[in-house]
Amino acid sequence: MNKEEFISSGLLELYATGISSPEESRLVEECLAKYPELREELNQIEISLENYAQANAIQPSALVKKKLMDKIFPEDKPQEGGAAIVTIQPPNSRLFIFKLWAAASVIFLLASIFLNYIMYHKYHDANEALQLARQKMDLQDQSNRALKEDVSVMTNKFAQPVVLSGTDKAPDAVAKIFWMKNTGQVYVDPTNLPQVPAGKQYQLWAIVDGKPLDAGMIKTEKGIYHIQKMKSFGKADAFAITLEKVGGSLTPTMDAMIVSTKL
């Protein structure tokens, strides 16, 4: 078979389309070796078929290429477009989450400071009220105890009440003495004495065998005049109260006698 006969036989076309039998293929390859010009003829046939295939092309999904490239070049995976987006995104979202946390923390801190401020004020107010209540309770307790003492003195079965009447100096003044007959203890009730002038203090005297003896200073601090314990006397002829300088005098100032009695 010469060159022209071979070309027109169609064997090259069968060979190019892949349907030549093994014998035909062998024959084609022999002829290709013998006539190198046939190679160009075959090349042209292949180009025509290739262009025909290209004209019928259908794009596969883009995922095929990505999967293929990942499979063949796995070491390049992080640098590839699709993956690059993934590597850029996490820092962004991490930054976003960090910002979110930071904002939440600041809000929490401010709220906490505000609440602390309110709570501190509430605590302060409550503490103040408590202190006041305690003080008030202490005072009440004090006066309660004093009152109890007063009552216990007045209701004592050995108590002998002695009334001291006002003198010319203070006609309205009254004082009371509770004299315990069993012990000789003297209590004085200054409730109805006039208010003591500044720098002065009431002093109780017991007249024993015609002589005035100091029976103790009467406490009237803070304006409270309550029954109080004085000195003890086994016997006494009379009692008197004089207005003396603070701390008392050795002998009574007679013209400053407020109340007195004779037993």
């Binding site: 169609g10 064997l11 042209q44 262009n51 025909y52």
Partner: peptide, 21 residues
Amino acid sequence: TIKTKMRAAILALKKILQPYV
């Protein structure tokens, strides 16, 4: 006849595709 029919077909193809190639 496959050989000759195939040749004719590819020649026709080539003619059509020639201006584009």
